[in-house]
């Protein structure tokens, strides 16, 4: 890694990563990439989030769906772990709770491939600082 020597260096990194992040922030980006975020705090991991993350990475690859699977912190829905958030390009992110391998398989086959929702959706109930 190169060192960041000034505020301008920092801004350059921000700009370069922003494009990638924007994809996650605004799902109407042109790239046809599916974003999957797996909540991996202690609560998620204890309920099997690691296995679900592996499953998503392997299966999306196997089924040739271009996607980015990343880990993230606690989404706050500890009662419904493991939880994953799926953003299909052009659509609002959707959070699925109680995800096991069977549910993950359904999410890939039904939601990601066909836009058909599957049971276990958790309505998002908070506001982020961007909108404030």
């Amino acid at each position: 890694m190169t060192k960041i020597k000034s505020l301008n260096d920092l801004r350059a990194i921000k700009a370069s990563v922003e494009a990638k992040m924007n994809l996650r922030e605004r799902s109407d980006a042109p790239e046809k990439l599916v974003q999957v975020k797996v909540a991996m705090a202690t609560c998620g991991i204890a309920s099997g989030a690691k296995a679900i993350m592996d499953f998503m990475v392997n299966e999306l690859d196997k089924r040739q769906i271009p996607a980015v699977v990343s880990q993230t912190g606690c989404m706050g829905y500890c009662f419904a772990e493991p939880t994953i958030e799926v953003t299909v390009p052009g659509k609002e992110p959707i959070v699925f709770g109680y995800v096991n391998e069977k549910k993950a398989d359904q999410i890939i086959e039904k939601y990601i491939k066909n836009g058909e929702l599957v049971e276990g959706i958790i309505p998002v109930n908070y506001e982020s600082i961007e909108s404030k």
């Binding site: 109930n125 908070y126 982020s128």
Partner: peptide, 17 residues
């Protein structure tokens, strides 16, 4: 849906830590 507002948790569950 504005009852929760995430400031301290702004990146929790959003970025890869």
């Amino acid at each position: 849906y504005r009852k929760q507002l995430r400031i301290a948790l702004r990146n929790c569950g959003f970025i890869d830590p």
